[in-house]
Design a protein around this nucleic acid. Structure first.
Length: 798
RNA sequence: GCCGAAGUGGUGGAAUGGCAUACACGUCGGUCUCAAAAACCGAUGAGGGUAACCUCGUAAGGGUUCAACUCCCUUCUUCGGCACCA
């Protein structure tokens, strides 16, 4: 058993004392910024953290040996509700609690031996960090991107605070899962929608992001291209705008449906025989919760209003209905119904006996009867019953009709977006105070830059109940208006913590700067982040907000790039017995206990070897044993070095160098380690000399750094392995002199033959045909065709 | 419903058109030992055969190809995102 405990402590001390991972400007070397999503300081690291940071550490150390100037920082996303709740529970204060947790966590991270530049550590709850949150907020306010608005907001009754749309998951709070309610409040918003076009388009630049993250952001931004059509009310001529993405079906619109809350409804039913029935229906749907209404399996209900609208393309009068399946929040709150080509409209029309008219035929010149339809036809086809557009393929007709409508002034090409502005006010204590004031005379007044930071008062009475604790701190609330010098009131809400994490990667470039959030020159050198690593749970929230902030900084002229993260890796979860490891399930494995029993290097090796980084990882105690066994196996090689390695082993080494280098570059750590295991197996067959073994140690270094530092020193090196150079393979060593050629007959392997590597195709064919097994299988039949794949295989077709 | 990812031995996984199951775990056998552990060596997809070897086999079915886990079509299953989105 190799002495892992002493080794790991020794080298952790060495790295820290020597400042090995300190990142400084060094322009003669290419830079590499490696970053993992910084943790919330809960006090203890779990296997998910270990996996995340180990993956990043391999990348950082690999690049280091490859001669890059590596920036690999660590910090803490320290504001937020859990600390506030924990402080209440433990009768302490959030800042004391949080700093204690950070201290614990720092010790744990150091015990893992990660290659962080600890001089750059930041905590978002320190005023020299959150001061810049306030600064950024003020800049956004100046640009009209931070604004105050009264509207219905998502409210978590259990956390007693507001939530952003992105924080509502399946109708529940992302943190506590309580059912989210709607509440009318005046709150601060960030105008992320001003960037929606760029946020969507630039997804195309993110070639090195996982497809699914791109897809999720795409869904979330939710652009839909269509036409707003101006239907007229038959009685008054008033316009009813209707949004559709299927303007090609406009000639098949046989009725219109308004949302029950639509402002026109009350007006058009007035005095009609249907008025009472309609009002009853509106009242009924108003009582239904949003969740019930938007579940798709509920039967679509609706009533006729008694009013008619005129379809502007053919002057046809069609009935106006109201129905619960039309939502006021989307589009214009009104739809044109085309029952033949929309399944929801189809079901509704069948239920209420409304007319159907086919306007898209699947094939040209084939009549279809609307009465015979079993379901709506939503596919492509050719226009029929569509006036001047008949015969056009519907995709072409879409554009033609839209352009014609614009010309006629009866419609407008339009884009709708799902993305909403970002609500950032939180009625909690433990966050960045929003740097705003309210003056009875001057209204909403920003805190002057010179007065930043607006510090959190240490003595707020927080109980977790009943509104923002800051509102109860008189000396915080009472301010003098900087404009009129009259008495004013300070904003008492704090910022959502996602604000803090939307730009921390820039702060790491110049963490102690006190004149700006980040240094222009430093950011120019280090940014963008070359490799970002974190959990898929941030696919929308954090990653979208960070992209938004980056674009905002670009517009301010502070940086000259659009996207913060060049390459993104979302690591898979750690499972135990097929389930996600979590405290609530009680199936966690404590990293500390593994480190105590086997050491950090073994834990790292197991995690890296058991699965590719992106996929889920099934925890396996026996796998840990296997990793430990392997390291001991490597350790023993050093005790049995031979004078000179056999040539076959040297060849195997060069093959391994090539493969490991390529695999690490592509984050295929599991196969890189497998290749090293093969090399070690080969060494056990023939024995390795010092030269070959030194190369093996270098190749292993990114995975098991303490272990390799020690072996490096044992091998007689005076300098740390961190200063060594990554091995290069010699292409000449990869050239094989003889090859095994696979021989197939009709695609099945029937023989294998040894040939010289440079054998000519003709003589290869002759050798193959002369082969005993081949002749047996061919039984004298002639070869119809012989396929030769150079250096690999020959396939004879008979 | 739309979008995305995936489905391979007893298990984790490898192979992106050219020997399916590398590497590891587990299991079995051997060496060493008084014995055990450790270590080292070997076997290990299924079925058939004393054996050489043969047949089948990558969720299911079809196709393209001399050759398919890999490409195309259809279907099923699992996971994730969005969703009465007009």
């Amino acid at each position: 058993m190799y002495p892992f405990k002493e080794i790991e402590e020794k080298w952790q001390r060495f790295w820290q004392a020597e400042g090995v991972f300190k990142a400084t400007w060094r322009k003669d070397k290419p830079k590499y910024y490696c970053l993992e999503m910084f943790p919330y300081p809960s006090g203890k690291i779990h296997m998910g953290h270990v996996r995340n940071y180990t993956i990043a550490d391999v990348a950082a150390r690999f690049k280091m040996l490859q001669g890059f100037n590596v920036l690999h920082p660590m910090g803490f996303d320290a504001f937020g509700q859990p600390a506030e709740n924990a402080a209440i529970k433990n009768k302490t204060k959030p800042d004391i609690w949080t700093h204690k947790c950070i201290d614990w966590m720092r010790i744990e991270l150091r015990k893992m031996g990660f290659s962080y530049d600890w001089d750059r550590e930041i905590s978002t709850c320190d005023s020299d960090y959150y001061k810049w949150n306030q600064w950024i907020f003020l800049k956004m306010f100046e640009q009209g991107l931070a604004y105050r608005k009264a509207s219905a907001v998502n409210w978590c009754p259990s956390c007693e605070t507001t939530l952003a749309n992105e924080e509502v998951i399946d109708g529940g709070c992302w943190r506590c899962h309580a059912k989210v309610e709607q509440k009318e409040l005046e709150q601060w918003y960030l105008k992320i929608t001003a960037y929606r076009q760029r946020l969507l388009e630039d997804l195309g630049q993110l070639r090195q992001w996982p497809e699914r993250v791109i897809a999720m952001q795409n869904n979330w931004i939710g652009r839909s291209q269509g036409v707003e059509i101006h239907f007229r009310l038959k009685d008054s001529g008033a316009i009813i705008p209707v949004f559709t993405t299927r303007v090609d079906t406009i000639f098949g619109a046989t009725y219109i449906v308004l949302a029950p809350e639509h402002p026109l409804v009350k007006e058009i039913i007035k005095g009609k025989p249907q008025e009472r029935q309609a009002l009853e229906f509106i009242e009924k749907t108003a009582k239904e919760s949003k969740v019930v209404r938007s579940s798709s399996d509920v039967k679509k209900e609706g009533v006729f209003t008694g009013a008619y609208a005129v379809n502007p393309v053919n002057e046809e009068a069609i009935p106006i209905w109201i129905a619960d399946y039309v939502l006021m929040e989307y589009g214009t709150g009104a739809i044109m119904a085309v029952p033949t080509h929309d399944q929801r409209d189809f079901l509704f029309a069948k239920e209420h006996g409304l007319p159907l008219r086919i306007v898209i035929a699947p094939k040209e010149n084939t009549p279809v009867s609307a009465q015979a339809l079993q379901e709506a036809y939503e596919g492509d086809g050719f226009q029929v019953n569509s006036g001047q557009f008949n015969g056009l393929p519907n995709q072409e007709a879409k554009l033609a009709i839209a352009q014609w409508m614009e010309k006629e002034g009866i419609g407008k090409i339009q884009t709708h977006w799902r993305l909403r502005d970002w609500l950032i006010s939180r009625q909690r204590y433990w966050g960045t105070p929003i740097p705003m004031m309210y003056c009875p005379a001057c209204g909403v007044v920003p805190v002057p830059y010179a007065d930043l930071p607006v510090e959190l008062p240490a003595d707020a009475p927080f109980t977790g109940k009943g509104g923002s604790p800051l509102s109860k701190v008189k000396k915080f609330v009472d301010v003098v208006c900087p404009v009129c010098k009259g008495p004013g009131r300070r904003e008492t809400d704090t910022m959502a913590t996602f604000f803090d994490s939307s730009w921390y990667f820039l702060r790491f470039c110049s963490p102690r700067l006190d004149s700006a959030p980040f240094g222009k020159e430093e950011a120019k050198y280090w940014m963008p982040v070359d490799q970002y690593i974190g959990g898929i749970e941030h696919a929308i929230l954090h990653l979208l907000y960070s992209r938004f902030f980056t674009k905002f900084f670009k517009d301010l002229g502070l940086i000259d790039f659009e996207e913060p993260f060049q390459r993104l890796l979302t690591q898979g979860m750690v499972l135990k017995d097929g389930e996600v490891m979590s405290k609530s399930r009680g199936n966690t494995v404590d990293p500390d206990s593994i480190i105590a029993a086997y050491g950090t290097d073994t834990l790292r090796l197991f995690i890296l070897f058991a699965a590719p980084p992106e996929t889920e990882l099934e925890w396996d105690d026996r796998g840990i044993e296997g990793a430990f066994k392997f390291l001991n196996r490597v350790w023993r090689i050093q005790e049995n070095l031979v004078e000179k390695s056999e040539e076959s082993l040297t060849r195997a080494l060069h093959k391994a160098i090539k493969r490991v280098t390529e695999d690490i570059a592509e984050f295929k750590f599991n196969t890189a380690i497998a290749a090293l295991m093969e090399l070690v197996n080969a060494i056990y067959q023939s024995g390795a000399d010092k030269e070959v073994f030194s190369k093996l140690v270098l190749l292993l270094f990114p995975f098991v750094p303490h272990f390799c530092e020690e072996l490096w020193q044992i091998l007689g090196n005076k300098e740390s392995i961190c200063n060594a150079a990554w091995p290069q393979h010699d292409p000449a060593m990869l050239v094989e002199r003889s090859l095994v050629i696979v021989v197939q007959i009709n695609g099945k392997v029937r023989s294998k033959i040894d040939v010289d590597a440079d054998i000519a195709e003709d003589s290869l064919k002759a050798r193959v045909l002369a082969d005993e097994k081949v002749r047996e299988w061919m039984q004298g039949k002639p070869a119809k065709h012989i396929v030769v794949v150079p250096k690999k295989l020959v396939n004879i077709v008979i």
